[in-house]
Amino acid sequence: MIVAEQKPLEDIIRMVRPYKKVLLLGCGTCTTVCNAGGETEVAFLHDALRMAEARAGDGRREYSEATLKRQCDPEFLEHLTERVEGVDAVVSLACGTGVQALAERFADLPVFPGVNTSFIGMAVEWGVWDERCAACGDCRLEDTGGICPITRCTKGILNGPCAGPKKGHCEVSPDMECAWILIYRRLERLGQLERMRRYYPPRNFRPISRPRRIVGKAGLEARGSHGDVTA
């Protein structure tokens, strides 16, 4: 899933300062799961903004709250049409895609990001998420024992470790395991070390020349989780 973290409160205050009626808009998918932008965080942000304004003697703003199931789907955005009437600005707690989807749908409405979109990752323990996928468009996990060197090696190199690790950890952080040592150990365990001994040529960066587009309509009916449009 996409992992994000809330922006510092002072940044959000700075963004909404010129506006009177502000909608705080959560997202019910990724940013809910990573505790950065769901219904709960919208309520917390609302309280935090109120308290900050009270302290600063600046209580002239009117906030409202809402959370969509997903901000990145145009279908869900339609449910907002009435909610945004009379609103001066929206602070979106969705990922960067959600913020942009809002901006595209509501041409006259200023939209601000309430979170920093960080990465695609997973929870490794309660409240801790680690990056696992760089969305490079050219997956090579079959050769690396299911451990991604592009994401988990700080240099994203393809032919084995650099000389930097100490005690199994990356030169940039004693908290980060060396991806290539992990890959070696896993391939050894699987009896597939020959995969690491192969030469891997330089990456092809064309799949990620930005912005990317995927067209996947062929033979698919609108159904399943992507087709059932319910708020």
């Binding site: 032919n159 470790p161 000389a163 005690k167 199994g168 060396c178 890959i183 070696y184 690491m196 030469y199």
Partner: peptide, 22 residues
């Protein structure tokens, strides 16, 4: 370059072999 005292020599030697081959 090669690091004869690398933290995990087995993986380092795989890289060394590739450098020789290259």
């Amino acid at each position: 370059s090669v690091h004869p005292e690398a933290d995990f020599m087995e993986a380092q030697l795989v890289k060394f072999d590739k450098k020789v081959e290259a």
